[in-house]
């Protein structure tokens, strides 16, 4: 790979790495506005849960993909681990789903640590390719190891204990849990925006060799970012499993799902606080609109949208809004 010199065109460099102390305030404002969604759109909770949940997972993806600049196309592994660990513990051991979700986080962190330690010596597209291979192998193994996962027939969750008296299958409850998750992910991102660790990651993203020269340990920092990203994605996966109520390895570990998370972040803007949220809203909400008005054409428009974003808004649509506001 040719080494790209510190690129002055990179969004983070262009707008200044520190977006200002008010960013946390914005996080709270946006979350507070979103909290009214179930009240306003009480008939469209399923869509709301999907948008917020995917926004949360895309933001988690962005911790590695955007802030650290390591393009992963295998994050479905953590969605799958989160969902399966939770479900299998519920079904086989009667463990409550929230503890199951924690166990999923543990499992995801272990997997991410091994995965990162082995493949982080690869850079750029090589890391992305390796991530596809890891995810595809995981999918095939999950599909075939029936005694562990239930195999291709999938698992279903007929009933769950109540969480603090709340019905976990209620879309309203799921929405607020997803919102909390999104909040966690965005707060993590906003911390990356300002903390020393965040600067390290951004330095690695811009030029790994230069970062090493100033005393940053890229492999360690990349692995740490990967762990955080995996843990948050895994929580999202557990909730996604509950939301679906039934799932199979081919859906939970699919390359499509991995690519979708990355696309949401890119379309909204990587390495920004709200980019993944904007991307998730556009892609999930948009495909629902397209499904109704352009039946069968939604993927086509999806593809077109991606091309247009790359050509005309390479930093993501979220940053277009920002630029317009600054003018």
């Amino acid at each position: 790979m040719p080494q790209t010199p510190l690129s002055v065109s990179h969004p983070a460099v262009r707008r200044g790495v520190n977006a200002g102390p008010w960013s946390l305030g914005w996080v709270l404002v946006v979350l507070a506005v979103l909290a009214f969604y179930p009240v306003v759109f009480r008939n469209f909770l399923t869509l709301g849960v999907t948008i917020v949940l995917f926004a949360g997972m895309a933001t988690a993806w962005d911790v590695l993909g955007g802030w650290t600049g390591q393009l992963s196309l295998g994050h479905a592994v953590f969605v799958g681990i989160g969902a399966y660990t939770m479900a299998l513990l519920v079904l086989r051991a009667g463990v409550a789903p929230w503890w199951g979700a924690m166990a999923g986080v543990g499992a995801s962190v272990v997997v991410a640590a091994m995965w990162g330690a082995v493949t982080f010596r690869l850079r750029g597209p090589y890391f992305a390719l390796a991530s596809i291979a890891v995810a595809e192998m995981t999918r095939i193994v999950a599909n075939n190891w029936a005694s562990l996962t239930g195999g291709a027939e999938g698992v279903s969750l007929p009933s769950l204990p109540r969480f603090l008296g709340l019905d976990l299958f209620s879309r309203r409850v799921e929405f607020y849990i997803a919102l909390v998750l999104l909040g966690l992910a965005v707060v993590a991102a906003s911390w990356l925006q300002r903390s020393r660790f965040g600067y390290h990651l951004q330095a690695i993203r811009e030029d790994e060799d230069a970062a090493m020269a100033v005393g940053i340990n890229p492999t360690r920092d990349k692995v740490l970012a990967f762990l955080a990203s995996a843990a948050l994605t895994s929580l999202g996966g557990s909730l996604y499993g509950i939301f679906l109520g039934f799932f199979e390895p081919r859906g939970m570990f699919s390359l499509d799902l991995s690519v979708q998370l990355a696309l949401m972040a890119y379309i909204g803007g990587v390495g920004t606080l709200f980019g993944p949220l904007v991307g998730a809203g556009l892609l999930v909400g948009g495909s629902e609109v397209l499904r109704i008005y352009f039946p069968g054409k939604s993927l086509f428009v999806y593809g077109l949208l991606i091309i247009l974003v790359v050509l005309f808004a390479p930093d993501g649509l979220g940053t277009v809004v920002r630029r317009v506001r600054r003018v």
């Binding site: 399923t46 879309r171 799932f247």
Partner: peptide, 11 residues
Amino acid sequence: SANTALTVAEQ
């Protein structure tokens, strides 16, 4: 897609 089916069913 299962996800879409769930959205439609709710509506």
